[in-house]
Simulated scan of single mutants.
Amino acid sequence: MNKTITWTASALLATTLLLPTAASAEQVVDKTIITLGESLGAKDKAWVLSRLNAPEGITPIIATSADEEKYLGKNIPQSQRGGNMYSSAKIELAEKGDGLSVATENITWVTKDMYLNALVTAGVTDADITITSPYKVTGTSALTGIMKAYDQTSSETGIKLTDERKDLAQQELSVTSDVGKTVGTDKVADLMNEIKAEIAKQKPETKVEIENVIVQVIQNNNINLSDAQMERLTGLFNQMEKADLNWGQIETGLKDAGQNIQSFATSEETKGFFAKLFDGLSAFFNSIAGLFK
C-alpha cells in the first residue's frame, strides 16, 4: 500500500514537472509577442500563427471577451466591438527611438492610424505591429490583446501602461470614431495627429486655450463639427493635458502615422513575386526594343 502511494506521488511529481507553468511560459520569444482572439478555432488559430510567422516555442496571449470589456468596455459600445474575438496581433519589439508602425489585414473598423493613435496615447512605443484575422472583423480584439500583452510582459518590454493612459486611449478611439462620421475615417486620424502636434508646439495650459488650438486646426482644414463633437474633442484633450502627457514624445511616436504601410508588403513571398514581375516586364520591354535595332 505504501509502495503504491509512493509510486503514485512520484509519478504525479514527474508529470507536474513536465507541464509548462505560467512562470516558464515564453510569452516573448526573439523580441516577439503574439496575441490571439479567443474565438479562433484550431484551424483558424493555425492559420493566424502561420500568417504572423510566429516564433517556435512562443505562448500566445489570448484576448477574451472579458478582457475586451476591461480594456474597451468603458468607452467603446458593444455594437462597435463586434461580439466575436478573431483579430490577432504580432508585436515585434524595436530599439528605442525606432517609433511605432502598424500593418493591418481584414480589419474593417479600427484603421491603422486609429491603432497608432490609441496605442501611442496608451504609452506603447518602439514596435512593429501586424494585425490580422481569417475573417473581416472590427479589429477591437487585436487592440485588446495588445493592451493585455503589454500589461503581462512589462518586465520584458520595459513599458508599463497606466490605467489613466489606457482609459485615455479608449476615449480617444471613441471620440475619433465619432468625429470620423463627419470628417471621414480616412482623414480623422490625420486631424487628431495635427491637433496633437499643435498642442505639442503651442503648449496650451487651460481648457479654453486647448479649445482655441482645436478650433484653429479645424478651421485651417475647412472642417465643420457639431457642438457635441467639439465638446468631446475639447474634453478629451483637456483630460490628456491634465494627465501631464509628454506631448513631444506622442508627436514623435506619430511621425510615421500618415504613411501607407501595406499589410505584409515586405514578406519574402511578396518580394519574390514583385522581383519575378519586374524581371518579366524587363524581358518584355527588352524584346520590344530589340525589334527596332
Rank of each mutant, 00 (worst) to 15 (best):
84 N>Y: 11
211 E>L: 12
182 T>S: 15
118 A>T: 13
203 K>C: 03
188 V>A: 03
198 E>T: 15
190 D>E: 12
122 A>K: 04
107 I>Y: 00
189 A>C: 02
214 I>A: 04
181 K>V: 00
117 N>Q: 12
83 G>D: 01
168 L>G: 07
109 W>V: 11
173 L>T: 11
154 S>V: 12
151 D>S: 10
204 P>L: 09
149 A>P: 01
147 M>Q: 09
105 E>P: 06
149 A>I: 05
101 S>N: 15
210 I>L: 11
140 T>D: 08
103 A>D: 11
180 G>T: 13
159 I>F: 06
81 R>H: 07
107 I>D: 02
153 T>D: 06
212 N>T: 15
153 T>P: 01
95 E>P: 02
109 W>D: 14
194 E>A: 08
156 E>D: 15
121 T>C: 11
115 Y>M: 07
131 I>S: 06
140 T>A: 03
96 K>T: 11
167 D>W: 06
91 I>Q: 03
131 I>Y: 03
182 T>C: 01
95 E>R: 14
151 D>L: 06
95 E>F: 09
131 I>C: 07
113 D>I: 08
120 V>E: 05
135 Y>I: 13
204 P>K: 05
174 S>Q: 11
170 Q>M: 12
130 T>G: 07
91 I>L: 03
169 A>F: 09
114 M>T: 10
96 K>N: 12
153 T>E: 07
